[in-house]
């Protein structure tokens, strides 16, 4: 059972306790809540993909884009997306583990 608590270590900020206090008050101050961290990273990945899309469009419609730069933008977006997906998979896995606890 100690295994499950370890999952959240790299993801949640050190200040947030692993088990929520009974008050269940969501973190409103600070703005560094887990939710905003997640949304921020998704938005970053999305903006990378939008950049890659623009670059590809510019390349294929005869713009002045350099092929090397365009392909790097695509590769960056791909790697960022894969990283995000891995984090998401890990979160879902942790959630499943907690869900399967019998009470």
């Amino acid at each position: 059972m100690t295994r499950i608590t370890n999952f959240s270590l790299p993801i949640t900020p050190a200040t947030a306790p692993a088990i929520a206090p009974p008050a269940m008050k969501p973190q409103e101050s600070g703005g560094s809540s887990f939710k905003s961290m997640l949304v921020d990273s998704i938005q970053q990945v999305n903006s990378m993909q939008v950049d890659a899309n623009k670059a590809v469009e510019s390349l294929f419609t005869g713009g002045s884009a350099n092929p090397a730069e365009v392909l790097t933008a695509v590769q960056k977006a791909d790697l960022a997306f894969r990283t995000m997906m891995q984090v998401r998979n890990k979160l879902v896995q942790a959630y499943q583990e907690v869900k399967d606890i019998r009470i």
Binding site: N66, A68, E69, T72, Q75, K76, L79, A80
Partner: peptide, 17 residues
């Protein structure tokens, strides 16, 4: 994380010039 890619790409652009 991606600055290495940017550095290499700058070299690609330069060599192409």
């Amino acid at each position: 994380m991606f600055s290495t890619l940017d550095i290499s790409t700058s070299a690609l652009v330069a060599q192409r010039t």
